[in-house]
């Protein structure tokens, strides 16, 4: 569990054995199925910490559960089992009503879709003032000041030029900045950024990523950066967690996870990063086809069906996330042969 690094900072979020499943509904099967259908384990027994002040990257392909994990942290979904605690001991499962509303002063989120995540009938000012209004903070002029500061902080300058605009008058990048301003106006401690640049033009991604980095460096904002893109993560994050089919397969400091990937899935991901050199002849990846239909119920490692190095034990037992060295944990029997033997038979 130990992701390494200085342990001075207290964890802002502590997750222990968190699980979240959804009822799987195939098109036809869903029509006729009665009662309990198959379950998809979006988040399957995940434990980790988010440390104060860090940017933690959560990497995975679509369907890996990374977005669900982010949504659990802002209680847009409720976890089925395990525990999720905020820094001061608040239990996310127990939050409701007023306590939940106040929790949102500390934890905010920005969304992937800069078009869908802003009410088309709200002006920029309406959008950013909304959290202050729902939290009943400040009077009209105090709110105006805070909105202006948030817009400025998010790079929408000068704020007055934007305040009365409607979302359709903004570009995709400006909308995402608006989304960030809305999240920052309450001055939260933790920001969940769910693929904030994946729907943006490549040319403006760097601006948004720099903005996030700056919020972390200057204001000590803790960020959970959810993405499928390993290359942006390396640039932005202090630590990286790699998720595969609802489980963490590797977790550690960003450079180590990327430069010294241990888990076969992490290696395959890394091998998929495009190299901007037409002369470079990359060795073919060993990873096979992703078996979409592979049963998730199997007791073994989720990656065993695809893994080029799968051993017999991989199909029977699921490896646990364990340190391979300081600040770097991996869930793979290749790197923990003792685990494989100890519990076989």
């Amino acid at each position: 569990m130990d992701g390494g690094g200085p342990v001075s900072a207290a964890p802002l979020v502590t997750a222990r054995n968190v699980r979240k499943s959804f009822a799987a509904r195939g098109e036809l099967a869903g029509l006729f199925a009665r009662g309990e259908g198959a379950m998809v384990h979006a988040v399957d027994d995940v434990s980790f910490e988010i440390r104060e002040g860090e940017i933690l990257g959560l990497i995975g392909e679509s369907g890996s559960g990374k977005t669900t994990l982010g949504r659990l942290l802002v209680r847009l979904e409720r976890h089925d089992s395990g525990s999720l605690h905020f820094q001061d001991g608040r239990d996310l499962a127990a939050l409701g009503g007023r306590a939940l509303r106040e929790y949102y002063r500390d934890v905010q989120m920005i969304f992937q879709d800069p078009y869908g995540s802003i009410n088309p009938r709200f002006t920029v000012h309406d959008t950013v003032v909304e959290p202050l209004a729902t939290q009943r903070l400040g009077d009209a002029s105090g709110r105006r000041d805070r909105v202006a500061r948030a817009l400025e902080r998010a790079g929408l300058r000068p704020p007055r030029a934007f305040a009365d605009k409607y979302p359709h008058e903004l570009s995709g990048g400006e909308r995402q900045r608006l989304s960030i301003a809305r999240a920052l106006v309450l001055e939260p401690k933790l920001l969940i950024a769910d693929e904030p640049v994946s729907m943006l033009d490549v040319s403006i991604r760097a601006g948004i990523l720099n903005l996030l980095k700056q919020q972390s460096r200057e204001f000590g904002l803790t960020i959970l950066y959810v993405s499928h893109d390993l290359s942006t993560t390396r640039y932005l994050c202090d630590r990286i967690a790699i998720m595969y089919r609802g489980r963490f397969v590797e977790l550690g400091e960003a450079e180590r996870v990327i430069d010294d990937a241990h888990h076969p899935y992490a290696q395959a991901l890394k091998a998929a990063i495009p190299i901007p050199d037409p002369e470079f002849d990359r060795p073919r990846s060993e990873a096979g086809e992703d078996p979409d239909e592979a049963p998730q119920e199997s007791a073994g490692c989720r990656y065993a069906g695809t893994c080029p190095k799968a051993m017999e034990v991989c199909h029977r037992r699921a490896p646990e996330l364990r340190p391979v060295d300081a600040g770097h944990s991996v869930a793979c029997f290749l790197h923990h042969p003792a685990d494989a033997e100890a519990r076989t038979d």
């Binding site: 002063r105 869908g116 802003i118 909304e130």
Partner: peptide, 13 residues
């Protein structure tokens, strides 16, 4: 739509 999630996260009832 995501803007409803966003409103919820801002604490809207």
């Amino acid at each position: 739509r995501p803007f409803i999630d966003a409103a919820r996260i801002s604490g809207a009832g």
